[in-house]
């Protein structure tokens, strides 16, 4: 069974569900997984940080608070906080000679925010497929904790 995670959404589920995020550009998909209970979640986030004043929309729109929300929900349904691991994909810069420099592109800032948030939460990042200028589709299998990352211009997926 597979479940789609659309833009600005987060989903929590258990094995054997496969969580899928289609067509990530500058957005990032952050997947969290507890291998013992085989509970996991994935968010499809747009923006690196939630602004402190008058934030708009759901928490899962923002990388920083989105990750915390997934962790909280996983713990609530019985995942072990101490065995959680994370995988990140996306954060590309689709338009190569963008107005912003590569370091400051929103894709790079999304990936950076994901790493920073996970480090602060003391959750190890066990796989990463970020940056570049290509779109990605992500499949996260809660039965195994494996993440497959597909690109439009290459034939075989990257396995994390």
């Amino acid at each position: 069974m597979s479940e789609q995670v659309s833009i600005a959404e987060a989903r929590i589920d258990r094995a054997p569900t496969v969580l899928k995020a289609y067509g990530l550009g500058s957005c990032v998909a952050v997947a969290l997984y507890d291998p013992e209970t085989r509970l996991g979640g994935m968010g499809h986030m747009l923006l690196p940080d939630r602004p402190s004043s008058s934030p708009l929309g759901s928490e899962s729109k923002y990388v920083d608070v989105g990750i915390c929300q997934i962790v909280d929900q996983l713990v609530r349904i019985g995942a072990n906080r101490d065995t959680l691991v994370a995988k990140i994909a996306g954060g590309a810069n689709m338009f190569e000679t963008s107005y912003q420099t590569l370091i400051n592109s929103v894709g790079a800032r999304n990936a950076k925010s994901a790493r920073r948030t996970l480090v602060a939460l003391d959750i190890p990042i066990v796989g990463e497929e970020v940056g570049g200028n290509r779109g990605r589709t992500v499949e996260f299998d809660l039965a195994t904790g494996k993440m497959l990352v597909y690109c439009a211009h290459t034939e075989h997926p990257v396995s994390l």
Binding site: I7, Y22, G25, C27, M94, F95, G135
Partner: peptide, 24 residues
């Protein structure tokens, strides 16, 4: 102009991100 040739979701999220700062 800037150009990208890729999956629709990946191409548009660039503008959606810009937009999402002020609107859903």
């Amino acid at each position: 102009p800037l150009l990208a040739y890729d999956m629709a979701g990946a191409v548009v999220d660039y503008v959606l991100i810009d937009l999402s700062k002020s609107s859903d």
